[in-house]
Nucleic acid binder design. Structure first.
Lengths: 412, 412
DNA sequence: GAGGCTTTCTTCAGGCCGTGATTTAACGTG
DNA sequence: CACGTTAAATCACGGCCTGAAGAAAGCCTC
């Protein structure tokens, strides 16, 4: 039931390249020696594979470190400038396109507000494509050096047939009224770059796992607390997708069957109790016309000032949030829970102790004891970074597969 | 982040053996020809690997089928009598040990009631070991032909260090008051056979996946509805374990934060609303002193007879159950949900439509549309079958690894 | 400053693996 | 009984990883 299909002797090499590339990417400069130890490959193979990677330009030597009287170790790293990545955040109020180098340093960004036409899909696609053109042009980046474009969108992303180069990707979103929008095909019409699309919350979670509070964990859940509530589940070091890659829709988990009406149309959803939108609305004292963010900040300030109803509302939210986290602990048995998202970061410092207590009260003892609950470290702007990890992940996983033109350039 | 470590050219062969063995095991007699097609391996490799498997006695030729005027195809199969498996069910009222052949046909079984000493762990271990001796002796089975002993226990199983031959397995169970019982070491003292231990509900789920309503699904959740409530999650064809293999503890998911008190000590757990024990207790009309099973049957009969409170109680249970299944759908995005367990099978025919409706009402549209909800097909006696799949799974996964003595016998 | 020591990296024979073409086997047909 | 057809076995080939032996690059001592 878990066949991994045909494997030729060539897949071994792909696997070795991938392992070495990943180690080098995540664990900084390493010598061939150390690389052999951490990867389990023999020194001979490491030398061989690294030679290949050097020839492809995917790895470069960067200084050396003396070794107690012997030949110095030559350090190796993935050259950050070797290729580029694009991350796109289709947010609630704007479309943001950012260009990164391989080290995920932001080289340029382009923002377009989404006020006039709302989330009309043609318009969003147009903004993505113009943003893409802008960041490439403003930095003089050759499109051939871009490994791919990762896009974080609201809603559920159906990946479609993997063989079709992203053209089969379809997005369903009840909140922005996208019903089976074929965003893959629409973007494909405007660019030849490899496309990767995923839910924005999931890309934020991915970023938190790679560069934030999730680093190093193999089983984790990033609980994203913003206007709504979502989660990104990581199992065995990779995102848990489920059958059609919509796994982790935590916001509509029931905390009170038949309870408060949720914007999804159902009742009793977690999001209807602890989502920022719901909290601000329930509090009812936010300055009229203020943004959701300002409203939540006002609620927090009121609670800090000791206003009873604000204090109580937040305490209740912490209990619900903790109880829902207990569900995650019971169901996924992670070693770490990371609370992220802008609202999570805003309220976290105040609510974390109560959330932890509630999780302890509601979860089973054993799995709870295996899990730590911490705050995330990345703000909402990390969605673009997370989106850029989508092509990056493919790059590392495939052992450094380059677009045809870029590979040819290295050979020359 | 998902390194699969060192891979030598030998692992390829192990993988090929495993693939072929699995195909042959699950998809009945197949010719080398067909095997090549379904596995993707070339005809040459298939011939080669099958030759090896034949020599090891892991595969045998069984008749042939004509082929439209050419050389007939020789059919191959895994000989059911080649080895044996033991499955153990540590249930609420008894310890059941069963001996199976490779085809999972039950050859012998031994039941020991658990009335006198309750679940004292020493006593349970003793019963397992005597049961094991009994089934081996009554059938005259050489222990060397037993691939392993799978044990299904109540509670959470911590697998310990994989290298220690099962000796590190520890069980935690709040219901039978086992606190870190080192069942691996205790059993190891009484037998040399390879040991595999997992939660009983999970083994039942595994059985349902392999031989019941879950067949063929790669992403599924088996929702187990008995005295309590549990779940077995399958992702990518393998059981989803989480960090310490306790994932899927669904019964203590919150459906009403702060609601009914549950036997786990927390409040608002699903189990406190729809578990058979809770239902019978809430109904309050079961004949005094009757078993839980009889009580639930009485409740069902009352509802069928149209008694208002019974009808209403079951309708409420269906709604809660469906809502909780909606949570599973949102979180795990499976392609199939199987409702099993003795209470599930008993109430299923009556409640399934309501459960499906509730799941549709409470789950998000898109993932709900990807999922079918069906009743399981295996009764609670399948726990032993499921337990026996634990060593069987290891056998198939490893490409037909045999205990030393058995392998030697084949060579002779 | 030359030889020796230590440590790192490279090279190479050896054993396997899967592929794909070729050969051999087994069967029905005319 | 020769022929066409299909299934299985065989084998040369290019690849892969390992492990051992050899080369490289420093430091230390005399």
């Amino acid at each position: 039931m878990a066949e991994r299909g045909k494997q030729t002797v060539r897949d071994l090499r792909r696997g070795s390249r991938s392992t070495l590339l990943q180690r080098l990417y995540f664990e900084g400069p390493l010598s061939r020696q150390e690389l052999g130890q951490v990867s389990g490959l023999s020194a001979g193979s490491v030398s061989n594979v690294v030679g290949e990677l050097l020839a492809d330009g995917l790895v470069e030597e960067c200084g050396s470190v003396e070794s107690d009287g012997g030949r110095p170790r030559i350090l190796l790293q993935v050259p950050p400038g070797r290729a580029h990545l694009v991350g796109v955040d289709v947010g609630e109020t704007q479309v943001r396109v950012a260009l990164f180098d391989l080290g995920l340093t932001e080289l340029a960004a382009s923002d377009h507000p989404l006020s006039d036409c709302g989330h009309d899909s043609d318009h969003v696609v147009e903004l993505i494509l113009t943003g893409l053109a802008e960041v490439l042009e403003s930095t003089g980046t050759d499109p051939a050096t871009v490994l791919g474009v990762g896009v974080g969108v609201p809603g559920i992303v159906e990946q479609g047939d993997p063989g079709t180069d992203g053209a089969g990707i379809v997005v369903h979103s009840q909140t922005v009224d996208w019903d089976a929008v074929p965003i893959g095909r629409m973007l494909r019409a405007g660019t030849d770059l490899p496309l990767y699309v995923d839910n924005g919350a999931k890309t934020l979670g991915q970023a938190e796992m790679w560069f934030g509070a999730g680093r190093g964990a193999r089983h984790a859940v990033v609980a994203l607390f913003g206007s709504g509530v979502g989660a990104c589940v990581i199992a065995e070091g990779a995102r848990f997708r489920g059958a059609t890659s919509s796994a982790g829709e935590w916001g509509h988990t029931k905390v009170h069957v038949g309870g408060r009406l949720c914007r999804c149309g159902s009742r009793g959803c977690l999001e209807a109790y602890v989502g920022a939108e719901a909290l601000v609305e329930r509090w009812g004292r936010a300055p009229a016309g203020s943004s959701e963010k300002a409203g939540l900040a006002a609620l927090l300030a009121a609670a800090e000032a000791g206003e009873a109803d604000a204090v109580e509302l937040l305490a209740e939210a912490a209990e619900y949030f903790g109880a829902a986290i207990a569900d995650l602990i019971n169901l996924f048995n992670p070693e770490r829970i990371v609370i992220g998202g802008w609202a999570g970061l805003m309220l976290g410092p105040r609510l974390l102790p109560a959330i932890r207590d509630a999780a302890t009260a509601y979860a089973l003892r054993f799995p709870r004891a295996q899990t730590s609950i911490d705050l995330g470290r990345l703000g909402p702007d990390a969605v673009t970074v997370g989106a850029a990890t989508l092509p990056l992940w493919h790059f590392l996983q495939s052992g450094g597969e380059l677009p045809a033109r870029l590979a040819a350039a290295a050979a020359g």
